[in-house]
């Protein structure tokens, strides 16, 4: 049987991305259905992540599925030394799909190799986080009307921020121009710059984050600059306020510009930005629900046509 797992969407083709975006849009129109009645979705969070888990569980619940799982690895037998393989095998005999998050890189791919039921990767280490990427793409598509030819500004921690790495790779075929705005210690890693060069993706690197430098952005993608990421704490003290977005920096920005952030924020977006028409991060989080409804249905083999002709919609 073909394994329909979603481990990474970095290599998805345009038509597949569009298909999932169209499906997410259907779920935005009608989020509540009984399409997955009788199905069991397992959420296995070997590494805690309350937001991601709640979003997936809400998606499953709104489609009528039952949810089992754990949110704290301490409560599971993996803390007693059970292998990942054994845990996945055991849960596979109960559930129709596994949503998993793990602190080790490659865990989701390995899990998908040891079971016949589909795996959805909800983040494995610093490696991949495809459902976040999908909701980012959906948010960009929804607000800009296209994914093509956009100026995407990534700000803050570009070194450890896996959401920006996943987004960068998945935008490969849409002719974006990236602006990487980060302190020296947290700049975009060489391997991703190489990826850009190899794939003909334009990018500009800068350290200044001002009203002028962001004036041409279509998307301003903010990330957290965390103290623990710095080896040099003097450097942290010097730059910590330099990558904070303030309402008075939005004077020159484009009409269509939207601010995204994977949340939770700490202080990198000031609260006065929330009232701006450019602020989009809360809607973005909500889009995560529709994107995840689409991912769960896709791995279970439910097609876009079936979603469009669905008679189980709850109005």
């Amino acid at each position: 049987m073909e394994n329909r797992s979603i481990v990474s969407i970095a290599d998805y083709r345009k038509d597949k991305i569009q298909y999932l975006l169209d499906m997410a849009r259907e779920f935005e129109t009608h989020p509540n259905r009984e399409l997955l009645k009788g199905k069991v979705v397992a959420t296995l969070f070997f590494e805690p992540s309350t937001r991601t888990r709640l979003s997936f569980e809400t998606a499953a619940n709104r489609l009528g599925a039952k949810v089992i799982g754990f949110s704290d690895p301490k409560a599971t037998s993996s803390s007693k030394g059970e292998t990942l393989k054994d845990t996945i095998k055991m849960v596979s005999s109960y559930a129709d799909v596994i949503v998993m998050r793990h602190k080790l890189e490659g865990a989701a791919l390995y899990a998908s190799e040891v079971t016949n039921i589909p795996i959805i990767n909800a983040g494995d280490g610093s490696n991949l986080h495809p459902s976040q990427t999908m909701l980012d793409l959906y948010s960009i598509y929804k607000t800009q009307g296209t994914l093509e030819n956009l100026n995407i500004y990534m700000v803050g921690d570009l070194k450890y921020g896996r959401t920006v790495h996943s987004l960068l790779m998945s935008m490969r075929t849409y002719n974006p121009t990236f602006h990487f705005i980060a302190p020296k210690e947290l700049e975009m890693p060489e391997e991703y710059k190489l990826y850009c060069k190899q794939n003909g993706i334009k990018y500009i690197e800068q350290q200044d984050f001002t009203e002028e430098t962001i004036a041409d952005a279509d998307i301003l993608y903010m990330t957290r600059v965390q103290r623990e990421r710095f080896t040099d704490l003097m450097e942290y003290e010097r730059v910590k306020d330099a990558y904070v977005l303030k309402a008075n920096m939005l004077g020159k920005c484009k009409e269509n510009m939207k601010i995204l952030h994977p949340l939770p924020r700490v202080n990198e977006i000031e609260y006065d930005v929330d009232d701006s028409k450019h602020a989009y991060y809360f809607e973005q989080a909500q889009n995560g629900l529709y994107a995840r409804e689409a991912l769960i249905c896709d791995v279970l083999g439910i097609t876009l046509d079936e979603v469009r002709n669905d008679r189980t919609i709850i109005k």
Binding site: K85, E105, A107
Partner: peptide, 12 residues
């Protein structure tokens, strides 16, 4: 060489 790779933490 990556200590947080799954292959260094599972019998695989």
């Amino acid at each position: 060489a990556n200590p947080v790779c799954i292959t260094n933490n599972e019998p695989m």
